[in-house]
Amino acid sequence: MAKGKNRNPPEVSSGSMADIAFLLLIFFLVTTTIANDKGIAMLLPPPPDESVIQEDIIIPERNLFKILANSKDGLLVENEPYFGTMDELKEEVKKFVLNFGNPTPDGVEVYNSLPPSMKSFINQYGKDPESSDDCTNGKAIVSFKANRGTSYELYIQVLDAVNGAYNEVYAERVGITPEEWLTLDRDDEIQDDMYLRARQGIPRAISIAEPD
């Protein structure tokens, strides 16, 4: 009887548990495609309302940064053929947005809220009376028009460069790197506040015209 008491409690053999788990694991390994869904976000303009007669809003030439792409993937930037790289285009857009050539009171307010590094950037490259007045609503518009024959690759590259310019401006304004800017989580209150502060007075004014 003493022998029976000393015996170990009976165990269920769990040796094959690992095998079962392995089988499932291999199944999921094979069927998995890690979601890598990232991209350039854009908001399309609302559909044209036919009941309202469209008024032509005249925007002074200096407040427009025109990028045209033709069917041979050639670029026309500010009415001149463009052969530079996309990084250079990004810098051009940045200079255009941060020009403050003839700022309105709102524009002055935005200018005063900028960090010193950006103010010196503006004083060095900006203040051109032939370029945008300031960066507030409707004063600095980047207009991009592609042709029906333009390749999607070029379209994305240009869109990427223009978005990049804006993102760099926003990131610098709140003192973070552009990479950190892209990963801001707007559900977080502090980060959302940062996001709103950066965009205050500098709307992302990218106009994408219908290709012809």
Binding site: K38, G39, I40, L44, P47, E210
Partner: peptide, 18 residues
Amino acid sequence: QQELRKSNARKLLYSSIL
């Protein structure tokens, strides 16, 4: 895109790789 505008699905994402 024109069709998407008409059907009021205006949020777009051009899927691309880093």
